[in-house]
Design a protein around this nucleic acid. Structure first.
Lengths: 138, 138
DNA sequence: CAGTATCCTTAGCGATACTG
DNA sequence: CAGTATCGCTAAGGATACTG
């Protein structure tokens, strides 16, 4: 028996069961969302696609320093399965693909923006100005 | 050499170095934020405190089905070290403590709300009405 | 380019027992 | 109640080689 919370209203409920969805159980809506974006590299991939709009596999890899091929393709596959991103084949020969956010993935846009802004604010608070004197490209 | 993105503006920059903060390196502001909330149970703990306002160790444990004592105290310790939560001793004998969000932890409130709302919306879309016919307690 | 397959290590994590 | 300490395992993840 545990309590779980509801967004907006500061109320809670005593419940004995958890949320069941596709043979998995979740404790609360936050847990549900984490099931989609909780993977080690997922939020970085999604936010990258949020700003780049579309990206190749190689470009994603370049922009995620430290990710292994295994992890990148695994996380991409899960994101695609969960319908957060869309993979498009640009050409068969030479083989070119493009990843981009799906409508569902775009619905998380406020999250990408907030998480990034919070990071920028934190850095500034620590005396690191992330934006300052940066050379920007369109 | 990789590119990194900036919130708000859909621009990016070519950089050779990463962000360094307290001997750790980050690829972008999103990564920085994830350093604080990326732990396995952290967002669940934080959002629990967001709605409960304050909670004991036992109550936290009760509301995080599946968490081990080790993980709970480890994550709590990290959150406290990172100044996202505050621990208060209510009484020494019997020993009682209370965890709550710090100002820094509260600054992530839009995140808790959004992540929860997104989960609720997703569940509804799947035919699961999380709020419906629930017995609520104040 | 865009991955997959395999091997292998390590550290994240759970279970249990113990403490103030 | 509110934790800490220790042990041991397993699955996450890295490195490398290979494929269409």
């Amino acid at each position: 028996m545990y309590t779980r919370c509801i967004a907006g209203a500061r109320t809670y409920q005593k419940v004995g069961t958890m949320i069941t969805l596709n043979d998995k159980t979740y404790t609360c809506p936050v847990d549900v969302t984490l099931g989609f974006i909780g993977g080690k590299w997922k939020l970085l991939i999604l936010s990258h696609l949020h700003w780049q709009e579309q990206s190749s596999y190689a470009k994603l890899k370049e922009n995620l320093p430290g990710v292994s091929e295994k992890m990148l393709s695994q996380q991409l596959k899960e994101l695609e399965r969960d319908l957060l991103i869309t993979k498009t084949m640009l050409s068969r020969k030479p083989y070119r693909v493009s990843y981009s956010l799906s409508a569902e993935g775009k619905s998380l846009a406020p999250l990408y923006e907030f998480v990034s802004s919070w990071g920028v604010r934190y850095l500034k608070q620590q005396g690191i100005d992330y934006i300052q004197d940066q050379q920007l490209y369109k």
